[in-house]
Design a protein around this nucleic acid. Structure first.
Lengths: 242, 242
DNA sequence: GTTATAGTGTTGTCTAGACAACTATGAGGC
DNA sequence: GCCTCATAGTTGTCTAGACAACACTATAAC
């Protein structure tokens, strides 16, 4: 039985959510043919244009593949390796066989400063969740994580203990990732950042600004700061814009 | 006077093209308020849903900014540095104050092999343009560029001389960039690639696979191979997928 | 058996209209 | 001056229907 969640969200977003849930749960595996537009129209009792918009957006987001005159299918394994990979630093460290520990510096509600507000497309002063912590590999600080989270998307975020459940894992579980953005640059760390990373004034750092979306809604914006001498970046990236 | 191009393309795509042209030509600069949906409906003689879809897609592509109840504006300077940057290797070399020269290896029509066809979403055997060349910095090969181009999007591509006009510059001029994708990995070069790059069998290479889109249409797919000892990658990336 | 042809089901596009939600503006009352 | 409220203009969403384009299948003709 297919039924829409109720809620204040627009209809087409709830249709998208329904599809995403079926795919994320594994009920609809790769190459599964999903119900046709007319079937969804009949089952959900909504208009075809609304269904069509939901399916079209999910197609442009890479979750579905549509074939004119045939049907709509769950996107299978891509011909090349996954285009995006957002890894957890904790997983990375453990895969290297090292010990991982997180030291929480802040974990609270804060009013968004202007630069953060613009990234979230909200008014400055809007209340957001803010977590700052360092990730240590064998007791050596390897990353400073400065993360803002959208309370509307993840209302219970503040209840977690970031030292035990990494914010990354919690967010991935609460809001299946649909889109991400990485900006990579080399910078010098601020004094308070240097203190937590235990690095020298002249130490160049790799800065990764990461934003993630789920179902069109921004979930989180994070600044990830790596001491240059202790980290190298690898992986695949995709970029888009302007 | 605002008027749509005629052609076989769907109406909403022609509306997008009209907006893109006005922005690319500079007629509508950053923060310019573009005509409202109702004005476009009246001037173009088409329905509002069609106009709305065009504006909505351009907004999601980052070209426009829409404010509920106010209007639609050309996206201005972003609060942070441009999210995507696709640079020309020739520009990079010249900025370092070095001499740049390109050696053309192939520049012709070819039938797409299966892997290329899948990247272009066409049938294997479809005729595409194919250019292979090396870029030399002070007569030292620094990059091998293996590029496929969509003839439907850039029909006169074969008429250029890649040694004089870089394919990158020509494509950027012919089809304003709207979207791009980078995949970065480390590989060993094929024998024929090693010959042109004048590198050793065991030399690790940085491989960047780059695809670019313009107005929803794929323009070009390129494999850019850099000898690891002669190049370091820097820049900003954005990724999205799955 | 092979080849046309018609029919069915699917996605892609477009229309005309409606209502909701939001913003800015100006008029009026205090 | 300051506040409240009505109004107009804009974008966001949704509907019901229509036709086109495409793929597949079953049927009929040869």
């Amino acid at each position: 039985m297919i039924v829409l969640d109720d809620g204040p969200a627009p209809l087409y977003q709830r249709v998208k959510q329904l599809i995403v849930q079926n795919v994320a749960s594994g009920a609809w595996g790769p190459d599964h043919k999903i119900p046709s537009e007319n079937e969804l129209v009949r089952d959900l009792g909504i208009s075809r244009m609304t269904v069509h918009r939901a399916l079209r957006e999910l197609t442009s987001e890479g979750m579905l593949v549509r074939v004119h005159g045939v049907g709509t299918f769950v996107a299978g394994a891509k011909p090349q390796a996954p285009l995006m990979e957002i890894r957890s630093i904790a997983d990375e460290i453990r895969e290297r066989g090292h010990e991982h520990r997180a030291e929480v510096i802040w974990h609270q509600v804060e009013e968004a400063p202007a630069d953060v507000a613009s990234q979230f497309s909200v008014m400055p002063g809007t209340q957001l969740y803010h977590t700052v912590l360092t990730n240590l590999e064998n007791e050596v600080p390897i990353q400073l994580e400065d993360r803002w989270v959208n309370p509307a998307a993840v209302p219970r975020y503040l209840e977690i203990d970031p030292a035990r459940v990494t914010p990354h894992h919690y967010l991935m579980q609460q809001a299946p990732l649909s889109e991400g953005e990485h900006i990579i640059e080399a910078v010098l760390a601020e004094p308070w950042e240097r203190k937590h990373l235990q690095i020298d004034k002249t130490e160049p750092c790799l800065l990764i600004r990461r934003r993630t979306w789920s179902n069109g809604q921004i979930i989180s914006a994070a600044r990830l700061l790596y001491p240059g001498a202790r980290y190298r970046l690898g992986g695949r990236f995709m970029k888009r814009g302007s």
